[in-house]
């Protein structure tokens, strides 16, 4: 993919609004982890991840000229991706979320010790109750996300994120311990 030189968001936004292809490519690249995070939170299967990306990025390409404040772009992508993700869930008749993971939705990693620990982490994360899981999944996908981005991406008030975050990671620690994992997970 052609990448443009590193520029700040205001300049990138202005170039996108003018229809600059390289700038749009760069903008999409910078926000793809947000789209992926929302897809994970909503448990979209791979083919729906692609639909989510196309409708979210398509909306940006169509409306970039109307966005005035470049500082709002990260939250714009988080909000739009969630809106489009919920639309896709409804379209597929799967808007009722369950706590079971669809089997084989994602490609299996190679079977070695590292993969075993990754699977244990996945089980621990999926063992978290609904809102806790959504927050942890998004934070693991976008460790640098601001509270406002998290709020838009998972539909949680900003003021709830701090308290739920403390509780959720506490539970994750317990679930990881139950999987026999402590600090060792962090060693590669």
């Amino acid at each position: 993919m052609a990448r443009t030189e590193i520029v700040g968001l205001p300049e990138l936004l202005a170039r996108c609004a003018a229809g600059d292809r390289a700038a749009l490519t760069e903008m999409f690249h910078r926000h793809r982890a947000t789209v992926f995070g929302v897809a994970r939170v909503l448990r979209l299967p791979p083919e729906d991840v692609e639909d989510l990306a196309q409708t979210t990025f398509g909306a940006f390409a169509d409306y970039a000229h109307r966005i005035r404040n470049a500082d709002a772009l990260p939250t714009w992508f988080a909000r739009t991706a969630r809106h489009e993700g919920l639309r896709i869930l409804r379209l597929r008749g799967r808007e009722v979320l369950t706590d079971t993971v669809p089997e084989g939705s994602y490609d299996e990693p190679v079977d070695d010790e590292l993969a075993d620990r990754a699977r244990s982490l996945r089980r621990a994360v999926d063992g978290l109750p609904g809102r806790d899981r959504e927050l942890v999944v998004f934070m693991l996908t976008r460790p640098d996300a601001s509270y406002r981005e998290i709020s838009e991406a998972i539909g949680m008030p900003v003021g709830s994120i701090g308290p739920i975050r403390g509780r959720a990671f506490g539970r994750l620690r317990e679930l990881l311990a139950a999987e026999g994992i402590n600090g060792a997970l962090l060693d590669s």
Binding site: M1, R32, F36, V49, E50, Q54, A118
Partner: peptide
């Protein structure tokens, strides 16, 4: 690693194109 993130991000890039 568990989620096959590399393949999924490639799909996201394809959608961007």
């Amino acid at each position: 690693e568990e989620d096959g993130a590399v393949q999924l991000l490639a799909r996201i890039d394809a959608a961007a194109e």
